[in-house]
Amino acid sequence: MKKNQTLHVAIQEKYYNEQLHTLSELNFDVNAGEFLAIVGPSGSGKTTLLNLIAGLDKNVQGVIEHSTSNQQQNLAFMFQEPRLIPWLNVEDNIRLVIRAQAIDKHAQLEQRMRTLLPQVGLSDFQMAYPRQLSGGMQRRVALVRAFVIQPNLLLLDEPFQSLDEPNANQLRALLLQLWLETQTTILFVTHSLREALTLADRILFFSDRPARVALDYQVPLERPRTLNHSQVNQLHDSLLKEYPQLLSGNLHPLGD
């Protein structure tokens, strides 16, 4: 892996439950500090890929390297559901991951939690249990849990999928803000092209199963971007005009 890279993926084959051919010849690199989005049809193995990178699934032919695996650096993961621990209150949910860090960092990270919670609008809810929070608030907690440990690789698996649009937009804005502050590398899986264009520096379009990279696309928009930007809409339409099959994953892979 090169020095300025955070993640190197070279997967030859991945079968899910030894039957479903999920990934094949999937190769890509992610640069340090980059915001990379992965867009693909549902069931194309995007979640499988994230689980492999996070080490939740180790059964793969190929190489996955990230800077978090050899140094004392952190990986964070925001799942499709908030996945907070129901019997721990908001602070204790976040403390759970702080306690997993080196002990000399605890005081500093505790302080960081106290600045992050108000920043995402949860100042009055530190003692609340997840059940008492709305879906949007639960995701804010999950966002703080991900950023509090200062990860150098953050994986997000359609984290705002089941939210209403205003709520999702607020969370996208928070995500961008925290990303700019921390300079972390982000891998953001989504099936929404508009969301990917709004957030990412670069987009990998996945083909249908078995998934490979159908198109590696650099987003030609400047930052800071506002959400619901007219440029995003233009780009969205012109991309779909150029590649009508892009979102169903039927585009021929690069190099064919």
Binding site: A54, G55, L56, L75, A76, F77, F79, E81, R83, I85, L88, D92, L96, V97, R99, A100, R145, I149
Partner: peptide, 20 residues
């Protein structure tokens, strides 16, 4: 799913057992 959270964030075995 909750155990996966603990695993990803490298929560200690002790905390994983008693808190999750």
């Amino acid at each position: 799913h909750l155990l996966q959270v603990a695993q990803v964030y490298q929560v200690s075995h002790r905390d994983t057992f008693f808190k999750v």
